[in-house]
Design a binder for these strands. Structure first.
Lengths: 227, 227
DNA sequence: GTGATCCATGTTGTATACATATAATATTTT
DNA sequence: AAAATATTATATGTATACAACATGGATCAC
């Protein structure tokens, strides 16, 4: 096992940079649903031509975060509660598979990262933009949990579905609820850590499913706008 | 419920045409693994410039069917048994979810289509290219079964994973085994039809899983080249 | 005033010339 | 002769001008 070539071409690096930037802005609601993303403007910002920008936008469209309309513009998709609940249902079943399909034991690094994220949870309420900060931490917690997934295909599917639902939190949470959700997330990490410390990861998916189900219920309760 | 606008723009139609053509050629092994797909050549064939071709190729790369290397070419990916088994494992779990997540009853049209596919199975052995013909029928059977999936996200994921593994059949089957596999497929449709006719679809996913598992085992047995 | 129509403006889609990277071949050096 | 290097051909990536399309406002008919 020699070191990976890691010959990430310059083009690929540029793509990843722009892609992750835009995706992050969308799921953190820096770009709210309905926002038009001008290719020319983005090209100017990232100091490239429209061509590489368009490649990123096409990818975001495939992932359901963007709607490209010829002659009109590229619009951040709206959040549809029925559709998101559908995705959420699927995610709840998928996390259970983490127990079955090639589960991986927690590394020391993962444990440490989860502890750090736990302390991050405590300072969310004091952040200048708590909703956005909560969404950020939520993403990092999710990605940390994905370290436990040994089946590559399962991880890819889970990530794709996650990024499709991640906007729900900053979108439907109000200032009051953020504090509670931060506490829930803190508690969730606690329980996860307890399981992982005892190498009890075969039941991790079950725990995760419970948390997703509860989170889903809370969201359905606080949601105001239908459709 | 008025008729769908169906304003599929000309550009989108063109994209779909080229995309489905190329994907079909890859999974039916018209383009064997390792084949280089020249953008210029494809552009000439489809009578467009390289630009729309490149959009299709990028999509195929995301779906794992193509590897794009700057300055070298666009190459049809090789089949890796370990990776495909991983995807297969996931697919086996996902089909079970068909029973749980918004299962849909079979329509008269679906029943009819399955009957037609059954007769198609009988003529596979006499086809001029049995392996390719089997792969074609196999795709259509899969797509028919997907009619039973009510959860849109689940269907999208299943389709994506299917197209990633569909090449296994024409790749690893030899002339002798094609006849047997065609019979297996015929029998599989029979059992499915029996379940669907009695509206017993809640156990359809279980049946499907059994068939996938057996197919997987047969593949592992007949496979010759490792890695 | 109200309606439809037309057109001006701006957007994304396409074609194409050029930049950059790769790989095979030719050349040079030892 | 063999190995390292330079060169050249050819591939994909990028920039940019132009075409197709959608939208909103001006214009005109009624």
């Amino acid at each position: 096992m020699t070191e990976m070539p890691s010959t990430t071409s310059e083009a690929e690096q540029r793509f990843q940079w722009i892609y992750q930037s835009l995706r992050s802005r969308i799921i953190l609601l820096d770009y709210e649903p309905g926002t038009r993303l001008s290719e020319e403007q983005l090209a100017k910002e990232f100091k490239v031509s429209r061509t590489p920008i368009r490649r990123v936008l096409n990818r975001l469209e495939v992932e359901g975060l963007l709607e490209i309309r010829h002659g009109a513009g590229n619009f951040v998709t709206e959040l549809s509660m029925p559709e998101l609940l559908e995705v959420f249902e699927l995610r709840m079943e998928l996390v259970r598979l983490m127990d079955v399909l090639a589960p991986k034991a927690a590394t020391e690094g993962l444990i440490q990262r989860l502890h750090n994220l736990q302390t991050a949870c405590l300072s969310i309420a004091n952040d200048s933009n708590p909703k956005r900060r909560f969404a950020e931490v939520n993403v990092e917690v999710f990605l940390s949990f994905m370290d436990l997934v040994g089946n590559q295909a399962l991880r890819e599917v889970q990530e794709q579905l996650f990024y499709r639902t991640a906007r729900m939190w900053p979108y439907w949470l109000d200032e009051k609820n953020v504090r509670h959700e931060a506490e829930f997330l803190h508690a969730e990490i606690s329980e996860a850590l307890r399981l992982l410390a005892n190498n009890h990861y075969p039941s991790f998916g079950h725990l995760y499913r419970c948390h997703l189900a509860m989170a889903c219920q809370r969201l359905a309760t606080m949601q105001t706008t239908g459709v």
